[in-house]
Amino acid sequence: MKTRTITTRNAVQRQRYLRLNAWCWAFVIMTLVFYVLFQGYPIICSFYYSLHNWSGMTSDMTYIGLQNYKQLFGEKMFWNAFQNSFKYMLMVVPAEVLVSLIFAYLLNDAKLKGRTFYRVCLFLPVVITASVVGIVMIFIFSTQGIVNYALVSTGIIGKAINWLGNAKYAMPTVVAVAVWKDMGTYMIYWLAALAAVPQDIVEASAIDGATKPKTFFHVTLPNIAPTAGIILILCTINSLKVFDLMQTLTGGGPFYSTDVIATYVYRTAFTSELGLPRFGFASAAATLFGLIIIVLGLVLNAIKSRLQAMQS
């Protein structure tokens, strides 16, 4: 009798488990199908093309094994783009993470009047298409633009600077635009994390006489550290994948000073001054860089897990 009861209970549990599993799959399946179709399949294709000498325009595709990868290692401009990608990442990530945290912290203050309005204002650039931002910013940062007008008229600089057309200033200018554009997304993440900080601890620290900075560094920051890990990973990966903003603002120029891997791949795959484009070679560059990002993602994930472990 007892055995039958246990068997029946197991069967019910199993059925419940299966039903739960089915529901999970039902929710996941569409995303999975789209992922396989629009992410997985192109990745496999890209790797396949990277093993071929192919222009992408004709039907003649010659298998050349790892020749493209071998050539890539000796390609000066690939490594320049590689370096620029990381330079961009190192400039953008700290700026975006810090600026978004500052704004999130300020706008998390319940006493601040109109904070929803400010939040919306700061989030607005996120919903603007990158290409539109690019076109508008070209005007803003031109020698006749408002930035130069403000800087020259206040005497900060003596002569107008072509911010996006000068190899020295182009990268910092793109970084500034990127921070302005994407900061809103990370601010939302920070706000979510800040909302989850237990208020009783914050209040207790205030009663104990902790100043605002002390409360932030000793109470708030340890509580939002796991979110910091996620933000860091997302921000790093997104910055390494940058394309649209770079393409519309500078196209990788002037003279490769803002040429990142994505613009390098695009240029190699679709344009050519003499001869046909090199789709296979560009695929090899994209695959190699993709692998590097995966490794970096794994390292950052390990750091995040470490942070979580420290917190618990």
Binding site: M77, E273, G275, R278
Partner: peptide, 12 residues
Amino acid sequence: YATVQGVDPSFA
């Protein structure tokens, strides 16, 4: 012209 591989940085 269909075979030659472009050089980076190019003349342009």
